[in-house]
Design a protein around this nucleic acid. Sequence first.
DNA 1: TAAGAATATTACAATATTCATATATTAATG
DNA 2: CATTAATATATGAATATTGTAATATTCTTA
Lengths: 113, 113
Amino acid sequence: MQDSLRRFKADIFHALAHPTRIAILELLSPGELSAGTLIAKLGMEQANVSQHLAVLRAKQLVSNRKVGNQVFYSVRDPIIIEVLNLMRTYFHAHLTEALGMLDEIKKPQETVR
Amino acid sequence: MQDSLRRFKADIFHALAHPTRIAILELLSPGELSAGTLIAKLGMEQANVSQHLAVLRAKQLVSNRKVGNQVFYSVRDPIIIEVLNLMRTYFHAHLTEALGMLDEIKKPQETVR
DNA sequence: TAAGAATATTACAATATTCATATATTAATG
DNA sequence: CATTAATATATGAATATTGTAATATTCTTA
């Protein structure tokens, strides 16, 4: 069981371990959005976003409801947002080292989420 | 910056996304342990554990101090343990679905960590 | 200093992930 | 019903991760 739980946790972390999927969850955190809106906000390939949504769906991190032509996604459990927030706290605590870990800084003056 | 932060978060999640590394962090959460003790408790190949420790070190999730022949590891920031605990809460909340996601249950009666 | 203990690193095969392209599905609308 | 819009899926190439086996490094101690 111990082991299964760890595999479960690892699976969830794995689903979270991609910048695009984190972006999706953050965009969804205020409330549901259609796939199309997500694609527009992310400014990425439709197929790519859809694939990342599939990963999040597979791990039950998001739920989706179909309304006519569109599919609306939302974060399944706010705990996931808490996890993301904790990670932000962690980031702030270790800002200096963290900066060293980052390859490069794209746009200097933007709000840290 | 937005983007860098997400890459940073993704990197941390990535480091957490392996059952062995989760086990290591959980074993370390009460306090520091030597690499040898970790290897013994995990019951895994020395080289394999050492590689996972290298991943955790690279992402600064653990710190290590050398004492003579041995290397003692500890969790760098308790926030990481909080993240793991949140994940346990999440697991409990979604137990039923979670069980479906798990391949198989190894040892039925063990304490859930 | 040679031998042994504790830990780390390298190399490589097997496997998994990611993105892009092309194609499929499903619903709306003329 | 043909066309278009919205979304999903399949395929394949490039890349990354994992575990094992072999080797290296660093201390300790005889």
